[in-house]
Amino acid sequence: MKDIIINTSWCKGCGICVALCPRNVLKLNEETVEVADNESCIGCRQCEYHCPDFAIRIGEEDV
């Protein structure tokens, strides 16, 4: 399982990461994004590279 690190004070809840995640790992709450299904994350980093706000990262190591 991958370590998904969200910086909630930078995330603006734009939804780009949610739209691009191939495994529906992420979902939006009222203001920011949150992890809905950590188990399914394959570590492709689509969310990380496309985040306009430097707000989501995938850790190097499996957790």
């Binding site: 004070s9 930078w10 603006k12 809840g13 734009c14 939804g15 780009i16 590279y49 496309h50 985040c51 306009p52 706000d53 430097f54 707000a55």
Partner: peptide, 25 residues
């Protein structure tokens, strides 16, 4: 991000989803 971004200026002034941040990254 700690190395290259000015922490005190974050988050950016850009609207949610603005492509500028992706180019900057």
């Amino acid at each position: 991000y700690e190395k290259y971004l000015v922490d005190s200026a974050m988050p950016t002034m850009w609207c949610p989803g603005c492509g500028n941040g992706i180019v900057l990254q």
